[in-house]
């Protein structure tokens, strides 16, 4: 299937000389949830803002559902809803009006029923006649989402959607994103909360100092990059690791009651068989075995550190 967004050779150097993006190539698949991960200042927002038409690219082309964002911007932009990072709202406007305004701005006729549905989905219906300045930060975030959904976009950009948002709202938002995905909307979110990407994303892109250092299926990424730990629970504590086992780089934990073996799932050979054979030869018995996989966070920290 043709990708819904194609970014080729995209670079951005700001007037200040800051190179925010360097030759980024990326394809977003139709209907997926794509998480763009990266530390602050990595270029996540710049990338989103270029696709949405807020920042002009220095070089490169972008097509949205086949429409070039420069030459065919009306068609491209009408497909996109954007929830910006900052809580920028028209403080004096009423919730219902500001959301209706967004719909008009995107060229659609009035549809109070749709606006009502969007507001209800985001638990904003009760607040429809409140002025935005009277709302809490979390409610303002919901208003921004409602504005982005007011024109029934095919693609939704969420720039740091859960920054400064409480747990309840974060979970609401995750539910909403899944619902949108189920209805066929492509969702691109930036975050520096790893658990968000881990929880939500189908694919993950990692951006660092303006470069897209990795794009991968989330599961694949975790499989490929994931380190696993094998923990052996011993019936009797060991004072030290026997010399015969030194090659396996084991660690002792819990006062000698646990032996920990770290291995890389990327390698063809994990070394587990050899380890177990050597353990038996050394006469070490064990009560239980468990393995744990590193989280996306560990992977991410590794990746950013390696690249630095």
């Amino acid at each position: 299937m043709q990708p819904i967004i194609t970014i080729s050779g995209l670079s951005k150097t700001y007037a200040s000389g800051l190179a925010a993006l360097k030759d980024v190539n990326l394809e977003i698949r139709r209907g997926e949830i794509f998480a763009l991960l990266g530390p602050n200042g990595a270029g996540k927002s710049t990338l989103i803002n270029i696709v949405c038409g807020i920042v002009t690219p220095s070089t490169g082309t972008i097509t949205v559902d086949g429409h070039d964002i420069a030459t065919d911007y009306r068609a491209a932009r009408s497909l996109i809803g954007l929830v910006p990072q900052e809580l920028t709202t028209d403080a004096f406007e009423k919730v219902f009006n500001t959301v209706s305004f967004s719909r008009g701005l995107f060229g659609l006729g009035k549809n109070p029923a749709h606006i009502e549905q969007v507001l209800k989905d985001l638990s904003l219906w009760e607040k429809r006649d409140s002025r935005i300045m009277q709302l809490s930060g979390g409610m303002k975030r919901r208003v921004l989402i409602a504005k982005a959904l007011s024109h029934e976009p095919k693609i939704l950009f969420l720039d740091e959607p859960t920054a400064g948002v409480d747990v309840e709202l974060r979970q609401d938002m995750w539910r909403m994103v899944r619902r949108l995905r189920d209805s066929g909307v492509t969702v691109i979110l930036t975050t520096h909360y790893i658990e968000e990407a881990e929880e939500m994303a189908d694919r993950v892109g990692v951006i660092r100092k303006g470069e897209l250092v990795l794009v991968e299926e989330k599961a694949e990424l975790m499989r490929k990059l994931g380190k696993k730990q094998l923990t052996l629970h011993l019936p009797e504590p060991l004072a030290a690791i026997p010399e015969d086992l030194a090659d396996h780089h084991l660690e002792l934990a819990k006062n000698g009651c646990e032996l920990i073996y770290t291995y890389d799932t990327r390698g063809g050979r994990t070394g587990i068989t050899g380890l177990l054979t050597d353990l038996a030869a050394a006469g070490i018995r064990f009560q239980d075995i468990d393995t744990s996989q590193s989280s996306l966070e560990d992977i991410f920290v590794d990746l950013v550190r390696d690249a630095a």
């Binding site: 949405c52 807020i54 709202t89 967004s102 995107f106």
Partner: peptide, 11 residues
């Protein structure tokens, strides 16, 4: 105020 983002990203 920053709300210009919407105008710039609209068709």
């Amino acid at each position: 105020s920053g709300t210009i983002y919407e105008l710039l990203s609209a068709p």
